[in-house]
Design a protein around this nucleic acid. Structure first.
Lengths: 199, 199
DNA sequence: GATGTTATTGACAAAATGCCAATAAGGAAT
DNA sequence: ATTCCTTATTGGCATTTTGTCAATAACATC
């Protein structure tokens, strides 16, 4: 009886990095930050621990790269749904967001929604996603310089859609359309409350 | 020159545990989960590493106990603001919530708002806080068995107030009263949207 | 097929972890 | 005051994990 030993493969740095990020995407979706040693993680990824350190510097670096990757994916999904017209279709973009979370529920909930306790670098990444949505909402309402109250309310609304989407994805108890409309009309409520005309 | 060595103190388990939790409250408010070794943490707390292990089993255990402690504090603050009448004053309870976050901004943002990546036990604690607010909102609207859409919307609203409060505490750019009213009227908007009468 | 580049590894020193027998603080009894 | 006894607290040990780097071997090019 022989143990199946994967032989050494030599990839380009770009390919290897992409492969490892793909693995991190799945790994951190399922396992807590410190649930395994770097040795075990490297084994699961099919590489040596040295390689993980080479590419990401360590556990935290690997985690952060995975967070950044997921943030990129989330924004890209909305970008795609937005299209390249100059009018903003809030329903379409929200649907793009919901689509990404639906297809990547594990990593989204672990990393973007859940986040990592008081880590500045990770916060930068999750905030990138929020800022994208924030600016989209500003553009939709034709606001250039939001007031303090407007900023607070919009950031609150963004948390609303993050939590509600995580919740919806779990059960999908109402239709996707109905759900997206709930989020959109909540945004309109907030605009109305703040006396913002959106025509 | 002599190094000041704190001599060994023998406290009751209850006192020591409380003291260590107090320390954890401050520690995790400022430092990332894995930013220090257990040796360093124990030093800062003024005890041996062995004692930390004895009381909490390790880093994760210590962190989780701190989360639970903060969750208790958050709920207690709302409980206090609620009083013991049988009518629910949403503004008062929200103000109690805001008060706790204001006074404990560091740990709140690190632990309740921020949360820990995909850790079931920590989620149980943060969800305890959310469930308290959830049930409060249900009580306020006289709902016994929320529909799926109502549940999603209310969970979303709770994320709204969590994020908005964290944001408000940072800058306090609008008055506390104005801010609390923003959150309360957003709740009313949601009820209206869902055709829920709150009289 | 030989050669050069560099992606990848294994192994080593240092650090951190988890555990437990030994220690001593502080209350109770004399 | 002094002794005793309980058990909170510690120090140190075996083990695991980490971080680093010189050695190795894929793969492309000639």
């Amino acid at each position: 009886m022989s143990v199946a030993v994967a032989e050494r493969r030599r990839l380009s740095p770009e390919e290897r990095r992409e492969e490892l990020l793909q693995f991190g995407h799945e790994f951190f979706a399922e396992h807590a930050f410190d649930a395994f040693s770097m040795d075990e993680i490297a084994d699961m990824a099919g590489v040596s621990r040295g390689l993980l350190y080479h590419y990401f510097g360590g556990r935290r670096g690997f985690y952060l790269a995975t967070v950044a990757h997921a943030a990129d994916g989330t924004i890209a999904a909305m970008e795609r749904a937005r299209g390249n017209g100059d009018t903003i279709d809030v329903l379409a973009v929200l649907d793009g967001f919901v689509g990404y979370v639906h297809d990547n529920a594990g990593i989204y909930k672990a990393v973007i929604h859940g986040g990592f306790a008081s880590d500045e670098v990770a916060d930068v990444e999750t905030d990138r996603v929020r800022d994208y949505i924030f600016n989209l909402a500003l553009g939709y309402a034709c606001i250039e310089h939001p007031s303090d109250l407007e900023r607070i309310a919009l950031r609150g609304w963004i948390a609303f859609i993050e939590m509600a989407t995580a919740e919806w994805v779990d059960q999908q108890a109402v239709t996707r359309t109905e759900f997206v409309e709930l989020m959109a009309s909540n945004l309109l409520s907030i605009f109305r409350q703040l006396h913002i005309d959106v025509s």
